[in-house]
Amino acid sequence: MKSSTGKYYLGLDQIRGVAALIVFTWHFVQVHNNAFKTGPTIPPFNLFTEGHTGVALFMCLSGYLFAKLLKNKTIDYEKFIFNRLLRLLPLLTLIIIINGITSIDNLTMLIDYVKYILKGIIYPSLPNGGWSITVEFHFYLILPFLLLLSLKRRNSLIWLLMLTIVIRILLYLKLGEIQSLSYWTLVGRIDQFILGILAFKFHQVIKGKNIFILTCFVFFLLFYYYFDYMGGFFSNPSYPSNSPLWIIIPTIEGFSFSLIIAWYDNTITPSNNWFNRITANVGKYSYSIYLLHFFFVFKMSEFVNNNIIELSNIYITLIFSLLCFLIMIPIGYLSFRFIEKPFLKYRINYLKENKTTIN
C-alpha cells in the first residue's frame, strides 16, 4: 500500500500478505489441533501450525518499513501519529462496535465492555487481534527515541536489543514465566521492531547473500520444528509456558524474519505481472483480513470438518485453510475499499528532508 509520502513497495506488500496467511492458518488449524498427535514432519509447515509467528513478521515489517521511509528525513511526530490513527482506527473502531453489539445484553455488560476496551490502550485486551495494534502504538510512542538513538550512536540499537533480553531474563526469574509478556506486549515485541530497523540499516550487507539467508532460514525452520515438537504455543508444557525459550523466541523470530525482509526487498525485484499484483493486493488488504478473519475462520474450519472432510490430517487441513483464505481476499478488498480507504485521503505528509542519516 502507498504511504502518505507516495512510496509504494510491492515486495513488502507481498510479505505482508504471507503474514496474514500464516495468522489465518494458525486460527483455522486451532479448531482441530487436538486431532493432530504430532506436528508436520516437514519443517516449513510448522510456521503455519504455529502461525502465531505471523504476528512477529508483521512487527518486523513495521520496523523495517518505517526505517526505510524515514531515511534522511525528519519526522513531524504529531502528523505521524495523526496518519497512523487515520490508518488504524476506522476499522478497529468498527470491530469493537460489532463485538460489542454481538456480546452485550444489558447496561452492566456495556459498562464492563467499555472498561475492557479502555484497558486496551495499555493492556492486550482489544478484540479480534486488536491487541497487536496496542503493541504497535506502543512502538510508535518510542519510535522517535529509537531513531534518535540510532543516529547518535552507531551500535546503540544492538546494545538496546541486548538490554531487552537481559530484562526478560530478570522478569523470567522473578515471575517464573515470560511467555505472556514476550508474546502479548512490547516487552518481547520490541526486539522485532528493533531488528526490523537494523535490517534496513544493514540492507546493503544483506543484499544478494542468498546462501547466508537460506542457511539462516533453514536454522529458523529447524528451531520452529523443535519448538512445535516440544509442545508449541499452548503445550510446552502448558499455557502460559514456564519454558525459558520464550526469553529468546522474540529475538529469533525478529532476526530471521528481518533478514528475509531485507534480503527480499533488496535482492528480488518483482515484475508487475498479474501474480505479483494479486499477491501484493493481499498485503494491501491484510489489515482488514487480519481483523475481520476472526468472524469467519473458526466457522469456516468447522463447516469444512462437518460437511466436506474430517480435518484430522494436518496436510489436508492446511490445503483447506488456503482455500478458505482465498475467500477472505474479496472480503478484505471490500473492507479496504469502503472502510479504510475513505479515510486515507486525509493523510498528511509528516516527513521533511534532513541531512542527518540513519547510520
Score class of each variant (00 low, 15 high):
T279F: 08
W263H: 12
F223I: 01
L110W: 06
L171Y: 01
T74G: 10
P144Y: 03
D13L: 02
T134G: 05
D105F: 06
Y123V: 06
L351M: 13
G176I: 01
L311R: 11
Y287I: 08
V304T: 14
I248M: 06
N106Q: 03
L88I: 15
T317S: 08
Y239G: 07
G129A: 11
R277D: 11
S241P: 12
W26H: 15
F45Q: 09
L259F: 13
T267K: 05
L292A: 04
K73I: 05
N72D: 12
P342K: 00
S3Y: 10
K7P: 11
I252Y: 04
G100K: 01
E340A: 11
L163I: 13
F28S: 15
L173T: 10
K7V: 10
L334M: 04
V166L: 14
A19L: 07
I348Y: 00
D76A: 12
V29S: 06
I247L: 00
Y346V: 02
L61H: 05
S335I: 02
P270G: 11
L107T: 12
F217C: 04
L88Q: 08
I314Y: 02
T5P: 11
I167S: 06
L21R: 03
L57P: 13
L57H: 03
S286P: 13
G100Y: 00
G51L: 03
L118V: 11
I249D: 12
K174G: 02
I260M: 15
I268Y: 14
I260P: 15
F193D: 07
T357V: 07
I97F: 13
